[in-house]
Write a protein that binds this DNA or RNA. Structure first.
Length: 649
DNA sequence: TATCCGTGTCATTTC
DNA sequence: CGGAAATGACACGGA
């Protein structure tokens, strides 16, 4: 219904403009109010269907990943995005565009010097059109093809049928211009284009109002006027047929003129183009998100097809001493293809069957060291271990050594590093369960932190092996055993738990419960295992949560900037529309005055324009009616008041 | 020394 | 009902 009302309003406005050519007075305000009312309903109506649109679906579609539904910022974020989409679907105010399009044609035919701005708009408008074409390619629901788009835009703008030939012309020129330019214009430029367009159109209106400028068309119009003036008031009944005839003539002229007028093309296309670009600025974000999602999927997929896990599996199957022996050789042979962390994990895999060695090594730990480390905050240890999340820490860790290459994976910050730690996933997958861990545990691909993959397991028996090459390479940096061990790692070590934090956190629930039940852990150990698992998962959740929050803030900032630009553009268009309407109103008044001044009443006297007006009926009949002044009603009101007073007296 | 930022952890809620 | 996820709040360390 809203669309139908808009079309109806636009049609009426068109009729109004055409009638204004012959001096028919029309109440513009009523049309305007009738036109903008649906917009207000759409924008502000609390009962609007837009308001009730379930945009939770948009979370997944637009951002490429599922966002937690509880986040209030995201609610506002998506609400803002939805409002912006509504604004885009509304497009620019159609009436001034359509109106100006015709008037530009008038200017271009009369004074070519005035057509400068309109021709200068060609490039801008083309950019808008081009971008609209891109938009159409991106979202085929709204705009299937760039060529058809112009045809579809035309009725939206003014309901003018494409069969008049203007559409075909526009389409051809559209294609030519699309070939010329490939780059979409920025939003500001297009907004400027729209402004220029309307300014030029406004100039056209003023030019039409200007007697000096409208000289050539005045001759033509004067012929119509002379025909009209040949009528007397007694012949006013025949005015209807005459007006209809003149309207048909005018329509034909205008149609033919439009088919040859470039400015009209600009005017009609630019509004769509501007919004196409305005929406195009919004689109890259979802596209980027989608690409990111695809990249994540690829990364996840690569985790399954990566050769490293297979190698790790094979190595893990070896007896533990073999792995120890392999560590040095293979590490030197591969030259960093397999970093030390991998062997660390592999060594850890062998620990399960070698509890005696582990226990022996655990006894070698200096309790004082544990106390010191435990007294220290786990944060410093954790943060210095390259752990978690910030890109800065990632860069730091990644620049230190090959070991850190696995550690630099922040939670979703870099898709590049997302694919790297998949080795860790597969290692533990092969260790704990044939179940695919990427589905059972790391289902949150968007923000899964690889930090835990890279946390060193309890590999004290191989500490010497691990440190040996590193000490040769990097003597300045802190020792890895000091950097890597988190508080929970130390606790697990002190409690003789033969699992790394990474394993404890990432193993499936069933596996974890089996571990708790099947290894004869003491209640303290069980409690510690549960705490480690809980803290580890919560740490990941916190990282994801912060990442989401940052993304939401970034998105909202972009949305605010875009809405700000949109608001400024709409304000400019509103100003121009007001000026245009004022000029058109003056023009209509002037034409009506001229017409009435040249008409004669029964006694042969000219009609007083102050006392008569032209009224257009729904069937196109134009009649001269006396002006109903409010003063009359007030006078009658005064009379009734006087009568009342007299009655009272 | 104050402040900001990143991070880990806990408590709580929701699914 | 228990686990996982999400998130606010707090504390801590580093810049």
């Amino acid at each position: 219904m809203q669309i139908a009302k808009k079309y109806l309003s636009e049609g009426l406005i068109q009729l109004t403009i055409l009638l204004s050519l012959i001096g028919v007075r029309v109440d513009i305000d009523s049309y305007l109010s009738g036109y903008y009312t649906p917009l207000i309903e759409i924008n502000l109506g609390p009962s609007s269907a837009y308001t009730q649109t379930p945009f939770h679906n948009l979370r997944d579609n637009l951002d490429g990943y599922s966002v937690h539904p509880k986040c209030p910022e995201l609610d506002y974020f998506f609400a803002s995005r939805r409002l912006l989409d509504e604004v885009r679907t509304l497009g620019s105010p159609r009436f001034p565009t359509q109106l100006n399009a015709w008037l530009v044609h008038q200017v271009s035919t009369t004074d070519k010097a005035d057509s400068g701005p309109s021709t200068s708009n060609n490039t801008n408008t083309n950019s808008g059109l081009e971008s609209t074409g891109d938009e159409a390619r991106d979202d085929s629901e709204h705009l299937p093809e760039s060529g058809q788009e112009v045809c579809q835009t035309s009725p939206v703008l003014g309901g003018r049928p494409c069969s008049t030939g203007a559409c075909g012309f526009l389409k051809e020129e559209d294609d030519a211009k699309v070939k010329e330019e490939d780059k979409p214009a920025p939003l500001a430029q297009l907004a400027h284009s729209s402004t220029l367009e309307q300014e030029s159109l406004l100039e056209g209106i003023t030019g039409l109002s200007d007697p000096a400028r409208q000289h050539p068309p005045t001759i033509d119009i004067d012929q119509h006027w002379s025909n009209l003036l040949s009528l007397s008031v007694t012949d006013l009944d025949d005015l209807d047929s005459l007006v209809t005839e003149r309207l048909s003539d005018l329509d034909t002229d205008i149609t033919g003129a439009i088919s040859q007028d470039v400015s009209l093309h600009d005017a009609m296309v630019s509004s769509a183009g501007v919004f196409g670009v305005a929406s195009e600025r919004v689109e890259p974000r979802p596209v980027t998100q989608q690409q990111r999602t695809l990249f994540r999927l690829e990364s996840t997929g690569s985790s399954h097809s990566d050769a490293s896990p297979g190698m790790a599996v094979g190595l893990a199957a070896l007896p533990f001493p073999s792995v120890c022996n392999l560590t040095g050789n293979v590490n030197s042979a591969l030259g960093g293809c397999l970093d030390e962390a991998v062997f660390d994990q592999i060594n850890q895999l062998g620990l399960e069957g070698l509890d005696t060695q582990l226990m022996g090594s655990l006894e070698c730990i200096d309790p004082q060291v544990l106390e010191d480390l435990d007294s220290d905050s786990g944060l410093s240890l954790e943060s210095s271990s390259g752990g978690p999340v910030s890109p800065g820490s990632s860069e730091m860790s990644s620049s230190s050594s090959s070991y850190c290459e696995d550690e630099c994976g922040a939670t979703g910050y870099s898709s590049e590093v997302d694919s790297v730690p998949s080795k860790g996933i597969m290692d533990y997958n092969t260790t704990w369960s044939p179940v695919d861990l990427s589905e059972s545990v790391w289902h949150d691909h968007s923000y899964s932190s690889p930090a835990f993959f890279n946390q060193p397991s309890v590999t004290l028996p191989h500490k010497g092996i691990k440190e040996e090459p590193l000490s040769d390479v990097d003597d300045d940096g802190p020792r890895f055993d000091d950097r890597e061990l988190s508080r929970d790692e130390l606790r697990a070590r002190s409690m003789c738990i033969p699992f790394s934090v990474l394993q404890i956190v990432n193993m499936p629930v069933e596996e974890f419960l089996e571990v708790l039940d099947g290894h004869g852990f003491s209640p303290e150990q069980v409690t510690l295992l549960r705490d480690i698992r809980r803290r580890g998962k919560n740490k990941l959740a916190a990282q994801n949560c912060r990442k989401r929050k940052l993304d939401a803030i970034t998105g909202l900032q972009e949305e605010v900037e875009m809405l700000h630009a949109q608001r400024n553009k709409l304000l400019r268009e509103k100003q121009l529309t007001a000026k245009t309407m004022g000029a058109v109103g003056q023009q209509i008044k002037q034409l009506t005055r001229d017409l009435l001044a040249r008409l004669r009443d029964d006694s042969g006297r000219p009609l007083n324009p102050e006392r008569f007006t032209l009224q257009c009926g729904a069937n196109g009949r134009v009649v001269v009616q006396p002006v109903r002044r409010p003063a009359v009603s007030t006078s009658t009101g005064n009379k009734t008041d006087k009568r009342k007073k007299e009655k009272k007296q």
